[in-house]
Amino acid sequence: MSDYIHWSLKGAGISLRSCNVDEIINERPNIRWCEALVDAHLVEGGEALHSLERVRHQYPVTLHGLGLALGSTAPLDTGYLVRIRALADRIDASWISDHICFTSLGNCFSHELLPLPYTEESLDHIASRINQVQEFLGRRILLENPARYMSYNHSTLSEGEFMAEMARRADCYLLLDVNNSYITEHNLGAGALDTINSLPPERVREIHLAGFDSRADYLLDSHNSPVSEPVWALYEEAQKRFTCAPTLIEWEQDVPQLSVILREVRRAQRIMRRIQGNRRLI
């Protein structure tokens, strides 16, 4: 199986949104790559796809999905996979990522990233489905840890142990969302740094950073604010372990001026430079 990974991809990128895509195309800001949501571009034509193709001529592009439902028990949606493969080929996507979760039960789609129990049975199930998807797409994919708001009493593995073993069994790569790890630690007490230290460095190919909302008794993964200081501190530890892992700034709700997001990009790049001995990233 081919990796279909553009290993030259490095530095910090941003998630594309309709409100900033024209500015990205016209101003060509100093970013290294962009991420596009798979489910917003699975069409034959239209402005969103046209803009994505224009961006692709200026920056490498990755595809990030929400709908593979790898932890679900319903049969994989081959029609969905056909469209993902066609889009990835059309824009020469650097890689494709999705989440470690289930999102559907029967014909009901939750529109939420529902957590799996971390058990041997879940490992067998999701590893098998990842293998099927990778075989169909002809490439390895990246899987991301979701923010968690509940846990299962019968889980027998930590999140880090589950992710590491899943990557080994499925021969896939990992996308570490540092913000999600911090949220999970706050909400459930699962150590974020323990998760980071459990992941094999050779499997982590991307890092996500984002903001959260603080509610009465929990944190919500909202992607509508700057990265918090505790998450930045955790990110530094992650970069020490996963040196050179490309980093994405996710800002998807209440999207501000592009200049605000670019400040987050520059901070991530400064951290990477410092940790990696001032190697050139931008």
Rank of each mutant, 00 (worst) to 15 (best):
S198H: 13
L219W: 04
E206P: 08
P230C: 09
T184I: 11
L176Q: 14
F212P: 00
Y218C: 04
N224Y: 07
L209N: 06
S198R: 09
E206F: 15
S198P: 01
S225R: 13
A190D: 10
L219I: 07
R205W: 05
V178R: 09
S228A: 10
D213E: 12
L219R: 08
N187G: 00
L175I: 12
S181F: 03
S214P: 01
D213M: 06
N197K: 15
Y182S: 11
E206V: 06
F212D: 08
G211I: 12
L175T: 15
S214T: 15
R205G: 14
P200F: 10
L188K: 01
N187Y: 00
Y218Q: 12
L188V: 08
A210N: 05
D217Y: 13
N197G: 02
F212K: 06
R203M: 08
L209A: 02
L188P: 05
H186Y: 06
A190I: 15
G189F: 00
S214F: 13
V204T: 05
I183N: 13
G189Y: 02
R215Y: 12
A190W: 08
W232V: 05
E229L: 01
F212R: 13
I183R: 03
G191N: 14
A190C: 08
V231W: 00
G211R: 06
P200N: 14
A210V: 11
S225D: 09
R215L: 13
L188I: 05
L209H: 09
